[in-house]
Amino acid sequence: MKIGVIDYGMGNLYSVEQALLRLNCEVFITSDIKVLNQMDGYLLPGVGAFPDAMSRLNELGLDVYIKQLVKTNKPLLGICLGMQLLYEDSKENCLTTGLGLLTGRIQKFNDSDSQQRVRIPHMGWNPLSFTQQPSWLPDLDKEDSTHVYFVHSFLARNTTQHEVVASSTYGGQVVPGIVQKGNITGMQFHPEKSGPFGKYLLGQWVRQVRDRERQNT
């Protein structure tokens, strides 16, 4: 089963590659559309700024490629900035149009609310509360620790309820943690850095890619 890590020249891909290898995936880090066509599932990583990331995707023609993935029904997982890119636009540095696959806009955290100062980035372990069940995730045990590792300064706002699967709260603000629409999933935190629960989430996402690939062969 082949996972294509979409390489647009941003961020540290080593940790995510290693996490996928530990889950027995064949991993291809590439921006080559011919190679990407052979993949069973896609991971859109990303560290850095939204405008840079979008312009790199546009230059490589990957924006168009990712948009048409919706129709192929192959699973796509965006992580951190990779999740933010799935939204309509972002106010990071300047207003930049995103991939528009999910409903919502990327905005900066409010750095203060009435009660307390809010430190930015939102950095560290925060538990997720699930409001619905992603198609690829079986029921969670209520006792399970759902702490995941976040590190980001911008978050998804004006989202639509049925696309937000799990959230955390930070500084009185709701932070969409896992989002999903059809074959498109986003994780604002880093599952590859989120200990056993992160491994479980990534493992379940990989399992559906594997199941789907088996059905098709």
Binding site: Y14, Q18, A19, G198
Partner: peptide
């Protein structure tokens, strides 16, 4: 660093 990143799933 490389070996740690290949083994560990915390930052």
């Amino acid at each position: 660093v490389r070996k740690t990143a290949a083994t560990l799933a915390i930052p």
